[in-house]
Design a protein around this nucleic acid. Sequence first.
DNA 1: CGGGTTATTGAGGGGCGTCAACAACCGTGG
DNA 2: CCACGGTTGTTGACGCCCCTCAATAACCCG
Lengths: 242, 242
Amino acid sequence: MISLSHINCFTCPVRHCSFLSHSSPEQLEVIDKTKQCHRYSKGQRIISRNERSGSVMVIYEGIAKIHLEAHRGRSFILQLIKPGDIAGHLCDHHNRHGADVTAVEEVTVCELNLADLEKSHPSFEAFQKAFIDMYRQEIMALQERTIRLVQMNVREKVADALVRIADVYEAENGNGTMRISLNRQEISEMTGTTKEQVSRALGELRDLGIIEASGKSLRIIQPVELTTQAGMEAAAQGQPRS
Amino acid sequence: MISLSHINCFTCPVRHCSFLSHSSPEQLEVIDKTKQCHRYSKGQRIISRNERSGSVMVIYEGIAKIHLEAHRGRSFILQLIKPGDIAGHLCDHHNRHGADVTAVEEVTVCELNLADLEKSHPSFEAFQKAFIDMYRQEIMALQERTIRLVQMNVREKVADALVRIADVYEAENGNGTMRISLNRQEISEMTGTTKEQVSRALGELRDLGIIEASGKSLRIIQPVELTTQAGMEAAAQGQPRS
DNA sequence: CGGGTTATTGAGGGGCGTCAACAACCGTGG
DNA sequence: CCACGGTTGTTGACGCCCCTCAATAACCCG
């Protein structure tokens, strides 16, 4: 981990999609002065479970995974986070972090002290409200996810994982091809299966013409078909069902 | 659903284990005056998903389940709640409930208006804080649960479900026998399996001498062994690992 | 006692985890 | 440039777990 000199909050491209999107210039000033910036290389741990801390991390650049170790040594990836996302906001009443966070590729983060973050909000109430809203969304998403993980078969779960992967990785060119930094093992840890099954499921989706996948290169050819495979009704349609 | 006349908050036996445990007599007075009490019979829906509401339900008596319908018609039980527990606090930004809640046996609830609930706290901050704490605990518990559901086999998941069932049902006599109001189908919906598998898993646990189970009657003979089966290290021991 | 629901048990088959072999990829060094 | 070893990805074979269907038994309530 390297501590970086400074990243300017005011010119920050991810400010508008982050937790701070509604802050005024004066409020942002507080954050800009007090935050610390760090860089982690691939595989480095950003946050460790049960570690005590009074700060949160906002991803500035790169992709990270929020994961947990289960008793049998099997790891499980709860979430992928991208620039603008926040990590480490979930902790117990002793301020101990509730999950591990690890860089999946080179990651730059801004460490925001909770006390300073509070000052960046118009009031303490607004600060709390922001957390409540975030937690609410998180619970509802996690509930849905839990049920999906339990009820879907492997191919559906892998299709689901691909949707989430495509959500955090940018396409590199007009082709829509992504260079993902996750290996098969990690995809399996997103779905609760094994690397071999992921390999097979990717092969099936490739044979169906839904994706192109070889190694770390991934292209989603039929996004709608992929979400169908993942068992989600195509919500983008919005058809009334009269 | 029957609307009941009134239940006295001050003499309420579940007040001390509920969301309101820290309220002063004056604050409780607000709740006592404004709340509404209802009774639901077994199987009746208490809260429906996507229904708009500005109130929460506190269980006064009986057991209810928080559940969701997945796309394929399969239902999944997220949580069992008992007297003192709160339901309906999870909603989206339009105040639409995020899950279904149904009575598993005859249930009496107190419906608390959110605006009134707020007044029962020393400050709005304290009110928000209570929600933040509740949400935090919920997320951490749900994370653990998700991973367990993905990684455990059926017998382990059933053992896990029994631990949770025992947590909400009271033993009826000194024998430690419980009369549960859940059928095998519902236990399977707590574990993400089928009623037949639950039946078999219960048979295995019975053969191992860990439980007694026939129909709706359940007795846990070896609680420690049951938690071991469920893959939890016996946390009750608290042995230092020097 | 009879009819409906619920629980149990068996048989069959498919999905998926596991192991193993092989191929592909990548950086290093000759 | 090729050789190489290590990591990662792919594919096949095997076996177990568990879902499904079906038959029987137990239970509950009138």
